[in-house]
């Protein structure tokens, strides 16, 4: 088993903190751009058409952002587990 009880508790904890954190985000920070976006505004630069259109976006309401956050969380978790497992496997094969 890759995840023990501590890891599963950590995963639940992160998702709960995310659910609460998103409430604060939509209450206090949602309309504001980040440091780079503000620099672009002050430099009079507008965002151009992206070279690649992604299939999803974070959404502009609480529930979409929550859903996207959970999808992203699971994707990152499993892609990284997969990548690191491949690395370990290669290493074990080399040591054999």
């Amino acid at each position: 088993m890759i995840f023990n009880k501590t890891h599963l508790t950590a995963i639940c904890g992160i998702i709960i903190i995310f659910c609460v954190g998103l409430v604060f985000f939509f209450s206090f920070a949602e309309p504001y751009g980040d440091g780079l976006e503000r620099t672009m505004e002050e430099g009079g630069v507008e965002e151009r058409e992206p070279a690649y259109s992604a299939p999803l976006d974070y959404g502009d309401n609480y529930f979409t952002a929550l859903l996207m956050g959970i999808i992203g969380f699971v994707l990152v978790l499993f892609i990284l587990l997969f990548l690191t497992k491949i690395m370990r496997k290669k290493d074990e094969t080399r040591n054999d």
């Binding site: 995840f3 954190g21 998103l22 985000f25 920070a29 978790l77």
Partner: peptide, 20 residues
């Protein structure tokens, strides 16, 4: 390995929450 994966997933969601 599990720490890396959990940490990465945690950082991903943390990056979604902007603070004013």
């Amino acid at each position: 390995i599990p720490l890396m994966a959990v940490l990465a997933a945690g950082i991903f969601v943390a990056q979604m929450i902007n603070f004013p």
